[in-house]
Amino acid sequence: MVSVLPDVSVVIPAYNSDRTLRACLSAVFAQTHPPVEVIVVDDASTDQTREVARRFPVTLLGTPVNRGPAAARNRGIQASRGEVIFFVDADCAPSPDAVAAALRVLTETPDVDCVHGIYLTEPLYDDGPIEAYRLLHAHYWRMRNTGRVRTAIFALCAVRRSVFDDVGVFDENLRASEDVELSDRIAARHGIWLSPEVTCRHDDDSRLWPMLRKQFGRSQLLVPVAVRERGPAGLRANRPAGVLATAVAVATLPLAALTPVLLALPVLAVAGFALADPGLAGFVRRERGLAFLCFFLAVHFLVHLAIVGGAAIGGLRFLVDRDFGPSRELAVGAGR
């Protein structure tokens, strides 16, 4: 007996996405399993995002002010009618069988109600070595964790509507880590699967300083989100040993002012950082060679510095501001 696949609504949150939205929508409309509707939620863009969206047969929604991806996705959930909601970020172009591959997991894997996917190493647009660093790292750590997980990344993710009716929607108090916080609620009652067959090309960060600034800002929510996690820790993009080595390097560097001998401490910590994830280093070397690996590790260390600094600031903010971090109570029920 042939099973009937559920109807799929694609929801695309977009903010100043005119550079990538055309490629994103072209890929969505080229899916082997076509969605019943495509909803673009423009989060008060100031560029040509809305004009690009109008060139496709989509439902175009908007927000009066920019409120972040959590609010945009919630607006799309409320307006959608599909049994499965497939989220695609506006800077992603899903592979032609991405929707079909996600539906296979949902229909064939017991108790899995949420399936997310993997960035390919090929960028949507090739913008240089920083973007190559980002995509290699993003691809590797996702591939390392395929299968049943506790965290979903909603840049490319299929979720049964019933999940939102059960656990609630995205926390609009969060402009980052909103997917981690929602995943924590989902994982307590529903299965989450990271599939290597659900893929997309992604237009990632391509400039060093904006990337580090973004990482610093996002990392400020690591502590409050982790404190309020209900179960075991979910996916981690970076090895704890590497984060710890970076923190030790920062903490011991001032000791070198006492005597040059103590400079050995941060040097050893940096060496420990470089050795913290041999699998990642081997993957990068195979993909791009030894010279790029040296560049990769240097950028990776700067990213870890941003993570450590952001987490430290976020931890302090969490101690003094009750409203910083996830909302303490969320309404359950997505509505229609």
Rank of each mutant, 00 (worst) to 15 (best):
H116M: 06
P260N: 06
D126K: 00
A241I: 13
V243L: 14
G76L: 07
F295A: 08
D47C: 11
R201W: 10
R328W: 09
H300G: 04
V250K: 00
H300T: 00
L5W: 14
F283K: 01
A298W: 05
H33R: 14
T121F: 05
V227E: 14
I39H: 03
D91K: 04
L103Y: 08
P129Y: 00
E229D: 09
A101H: 04
V225R: 02
V267L: 15
F292M: 04
P232M: 01
E108Q: 11
A23S: 15
D179S: 02
V40W: 07
L208N: 01
V223Y: 06
E108F: 05
V115H: 02
D203W: 08
L222K: 10
I153M: 05
Q220K: 14
G76W: 05
F29S: 01
Y140M: 06
R239I: 02
A249V: 13
G128N: 05
W209D: 00
A331C: 01
V36L: 08
E108G: 05
V52F: 03
L212D: 07
M211H: 12
E122V: 15
R322K: 13
E37A: 05
R144N: 09
A23V: 02
W141N: 04
V261A: 14
L194Q: 08
W141V: 13
D18E: 15
L124H: 10
R328G: 12
P57H: 03
G231C: 06
D42E: 04
G310R: 02
K214M: 10
G231L: 12
A312D: 00
E329N: 03
M211G: 12
E287H: 10
R75Q: 12
F87K: 00
P254E: 07
V38K: 08
V58P: 04
I313V: 15
Y133A: 03
G325N: 09
G315S: 08
H202F: 15
E83I: 02
S95G: 06
L258F: 13
C114G: 01
A101W: 00
G335V: 12
R144Q: 13
P57Y: 04
L25V: 12
I192G: 03
P129E: 11
V332Y: 02
A90Y: 06
P254R: 05
V227K: 11
A276T: 04
W209E: 04
H190P: 07
T59E: 09
L280S: 00
A30S: 15
V248Q: 01
A152S: 14
V169Y: 00
L297F: 00
A98T: 09
N16Q: 14
H33M: 07
L174T: 08
G309P: 04
